[in-house]
Design a protein around this nucleic acid. Structure first.
Ligand SMILES: [Mn+2]
Ligand SMILES: [Mn+2]
Ligand SMILES: [Mn+2]
Ligand SMILES: [Mn+2]
Lengths: 218, 218
DNA sequence: TATTTTATTTAGATTAATCTAAAAATATCG
DNA sequence: CGATATTTTTAGATTAATCTAAATAAAATA
């Protein structure tokens, strides 16, 4: 199969491709993988050789369909392990990412499919991100940033754009964990901060910066 | 911490040291790790440098107490993951070793201790091998090979000396899985094979070779 | 468009883990 | 004990992944 390192590059390219249709640049990959551009170029040659990416010198890269499959499979494993850690071992949602970074490289189709069944075939990980099924299919939900909502609109917190432990801990403190129902009560013009009602009870104001990183289903 | 490879060498040295008090030889390690003696020598220098082994040129190696701790911790992880795979994911006892070889290198003290609790702090893995507790303590049971038992003696199958899938599948076919009660009915002088009664019901003959690899508690 | 800045690639080294072949040490046996 | 066989170590290469510094291509800007 692919090496630990190759897998991490594939995953990085996949995440950088999400949303935009553009090719991914060498520097973007270097930043995401904490390496230098020269190292990335070397690896890109190798991945292109293996037909996992489309690579033209100076023009950036896209994943081939084989490459997408490989990346999605790693993401499937990552997210299922995160669910396991939270649901079965009692970890908190801000504690599981680093361990899942290791577990996602364990190689066994049977293992991951049995884990999937054991967990009850979850559709989302502890951060609300969708879990690809065993055929690689991802069911994306229509999510909106709180910062894009209008006064009076309501929704359910269902995802985050920022996965750092500090941010996730903050959301807990604010009572804005997944599943929480919110209603926008006021948009403060002065600094863009947002007043909202949480679970029909608490009234709270959050900064635009925080609002941009919380995703809701309307 | 230690690299994947270093961990595998430590584990190999530990297993080769079990039982005998002698120092372990370069060739033994090479055989166990599927490498060549020259590669082993290189690694031994490195492990000695890190104070994980006592190494004198041409004289073989022993683990230091730091080395033993490291090795025991890997074995703890290996065996707990094996229990998880069998008890929670429904794998059979002959299917889990290779996956556990990968999982044993996942680095998280918290993870493994929570897994331990989740599994109900098992004392033995699916092959009957003892699981070190979080302080590294191993409770060895007094086990006897069937080949060393006398006519009339009885006991409970509680371990194996051979972990290959073919052997484990054979034991299942013979009805000699862990927990099975046996009574020695006759020792066949001609070829050393052994007749025994399984669970007070079935009468069976097994070869000396098979008998040598089944361990019982009297 | 020419110049300057930025991004990317190449060249050349380094480190970890491995190997083969040769040299050196130890063990075995007549 | 000394010759022979075995084991272990050293020497020198190789491969994967990384780096720094220099060269080159592309993009931005004056
Ligand atoms: Mn994650
Ligand atoms: Mn996640
Ligand atoms: Mn095992
Ligand atoms: Mn086992």
């Amino acid at each position: 199969m692919h090496s630990f390192t190759e897998e991490n590059y594939l995953k990085a390219i996949y995440h950088l491709s999400e949303g935009n249709t553009m090719a991914v640049s060498t520097n973007q990959i270097a930043e995401m993988t904490n390496t230098k551009a020269a190292s990335v170029t070397d690896m890109l040659k190798k991945l292109a050789e293996k037909k996992l990416i489309n690579y033209i010198k100076y023009q950036g890269v896209t994943l081939t369909s084989t490459g997408v499959n490989a990346a999605v499979n790693i993401i499937r494993k990552h997210r299922l392990w995160e669910v396991f850690l939270v649901e079965k071992l009692g970890f908190k949602w801000d504690e599981v990412h680093d361990i899942a970074e290791e577990l996602e490289h364990i190689n066994s189709e049977t293992l991951i499919n049995r884990l999937d069944d054991f967990l009850g075939n979850p559709v989302a990980d502890p951060h609300g991100d969708p879990i690809p099924d065993r055929s690689g299919l991802i069911k994306h939900k229509k999510l909106v940033k709180i910062s894009e909502m209008q006064t009076g609109e309501s929704g359910t917190v269902s995802g985050v754009n920022e996965h750092s432990s500090v941010f996730l801990k903050l959301l807990e403190k604010l009572g804005l964990t997944l599943g929480t129902k919110i209603i926008i009560s006021e948009l403060i013009e002065f600094d863009g901060s947002i007043m909202l009602t949480i679970d029909q009870k608490t009234e709270r104001t959050i900064s635009r910066e925080v609002a941009k990183n919380i995703l809701v289903i309307l």
